[in-house]
Amino acid sequence: MVKEFEKAGFPVVQMANLVPVAKTVGANRIVPTISIPYPLGDPATSKEEQWKLRYHRVGVALDSLATDIKEQTVFKVKL
Protein backbone atom coordinates (compact mmCIF):
# COMPACT_ATOMS: atom_id res chain seq x y z
CA MET A 1 0.00 0.00 0.00
CA VAL A 2 2.89 2.35 0.76
CA LYS A 3 4.13 2.05 -2.81
CA GLU A 4 0.70 2.98 -4.19
CA PHE A 5 0.57 6.16 -2.10
CA GLU A 6 4.08 7.04 -3.26
CA LYS A 7 3.14 6.39 -6.92
CA ALA A 8 0.19 8.76 -6.49
CA GLY A 9 2.60 11.49 -5.34
CA PHE A 10 2.06 11.30 -1.58
CA PRO A 11 5.28 10.84 0.39
CA VAL A 12 4.93 8.29 3.19
CA VAL A 13 7.12 7.62 6.19
CA GLN A 14 6.96 4.39 8.15
CA MET A 15 8.03 4.50 11.77
CA ALA A 16 9.04 0.95 12.66
CA ASN A 17 11.04 -0.92 15.23
CA LEU A 18 11.58 -3.81 12.82
CA VAL A 19 13.47 -1.97 10.10
CA PRO A 20 14.23 -5.11 8.02
CA VAL A 21 10.49 -5.84 7.83
CA ALA A 22 9.75 -2.25 6.77
CA LYS A 23 12.36 -2.62 4.02
CA THR A 24 10.86 -5.92 2.89
CA VAL A 25 7.35 -4.49 2.54
CA GLY A 26 8.70 -1.64 0.42
CA ALA A 27 8.64 1.41 2.68
CA ASN A 28 10.80 4.14 1.14
CA ARG A 29 11.24 6.39 4.18
CA ILE A 30 11.86 4.55 7.43
CA VAL A 31 12.34 6.03 10.90
CA PRO A 32 13.42 3.53 13.58
CA THR A 33 11.38 3.40 16.79
CA ILE A 34 12.12 2.04 20.26
CA SER A 35 10.26 -1.24 20.82
CA ILE A 36 7.13 -3.16 19.94
CA PRO A 37 5.02 -2.27 23.01
CA TYR A 38 6.33 1.32 23.21
CA PRO A 39 7.36 2.49 19.74
CA LEU A 40 7.72 6.14 20.73
CA GLY A 41 8.49 5.96 24.40
CA ASP A 42 10.15 4.19 27.27
CA PRO A 43 8.04 3.95 30.44
CA ALA A 44 11.20 3.45 32.48
CA THR A 45 12.18 7.09 31.84
CA SER A 46 10.71 10.35 33.08
CA LYS A 47 7.84 12.05 31.27
CA GLU A 48 10.22 14.80 30.15
CA GLU A 49 12.62 12.26 28.62
CA GLN A 50 9.74 10.49 26.87
CA TRP A 51 8.49 13.80 25.48
CA LYS A 52 11.98 14.64 24.14
CA LEU A 53 12.28 11.22 22.55
CA ARG A 54 8.85 11.47 20.89
CA TYR A 55 9.44 15.05 19.78
CA HIS A 56 12.73 14.10 18.15
CA ARG A 57 11.45 10.96 16.39
CA VAL A 58 8.33 12.65 15.04
CA GLY A 59 10.51 15.57 13.91
CA VAL A 60 12.77 13.17 12.01
CA ALA A 61 9.68 11.61 10.42
CA LEU A 62 8.34 15.01 9.34
CA ASP A 63 11.74 16.03 7.96
CA SER A 64 11.91 12.78 6.01
CA LEU A 65 8.65 13.66 4.24
CA ALA A 66 10.33 16.77 2.85
CA THR A 67 13.47 14.89 1.78
CA ASP A 68 13.83 13.92 -1.85
CA ILE A 69 14.99 10.29 -1.99
CA LYS A 70 15.81 7.94 -4.86
CA GLU A 71 15.91 4.64 -2.94
CA GLN A 72 14.83 3.19 0.40
CA THR A 73 16.27 5.33 3.17
CA VAL A 74 16.51 4.68 6.91
CA PHE A 75 16.74 8.03 8.66
CA LYS A 76 19.06 8.35 11.63
CA VAL A 77 17.74 9.21 15.08
CA LYS A 78 19.44 10.08 18.33
CA LEU A 79 19.63 7.28 20.84
Rank of each mutant, 00 (worst) to 15 (best):
L62H: 01
T24V: 10
E71T: 11
M1E: 13
V74D: 01
S46V: 06
R54K: 07
F75S: 02
P32V: 04
M15L: 11
R57N: 07
V58R: 08
W51R: 12
L65D: 03
L40P: 06
G26E: 09
F75L: 02
Q50E: 15
P32H: 09
V77H: 04
V21R: 15
L62I: 03
G9H: 06
R29I: 07
A61F: 00
Y55P: 03
Q14N: 13
V12A: 02
L79D: 10
I34K: 15
K47C: 06
P32N: 14
R57I: 07
K52P: 09
V74K: 01
S64R: 01
G59H: 00
L62N: 01
A61V: 00
V21H: 15
K70H: 15
A16M: 05
G26I: 10
V25T: 14
P20H: 05
A66H: 04
Q50V: 05
I34W: 08
Q14W: 10
S35H: 05
P11D: 11
Y55L: 12
I34N: 14
D63A: 05
P39H: 11
L40C: 07
D68C: 07
V77F: 03
P37M: 10
Y55F: 13
R57Q: 10
Q14D: 14
T73V: 06
K76P: 13
E71G: 11
G59W: 00
A44Q: 12
Y38L: 08
M1G: 13
V19T: 12
G59F: 00
V58S: 09
E4C: 08
F10W: 09
W51C: 12
K3A: 12
A16I: 03
T24M: 15
M15N: 00
M1Y: 15
Y38V: 11
P43N: 08
I36S: 13
L53H: 05
V77P: 06
A27R: 04
R29M: 06
M15K: 01
P32G: 08
V12P: 02
I36W: 08
P43K: 10
V12H: 00
V2G: 14
R54L: 12
V12C: 05
A61N: 02
P39Y: 11
P39I: 09
L79K: 14
Y38A: 12
E4L: 12
I36G: 10
Q14P: 02
K23M: 13
Y55K: 11
A22I: 08
Y38I: 04
H56G: 06
V74Y: 01
D63T: 00
T24D: 14
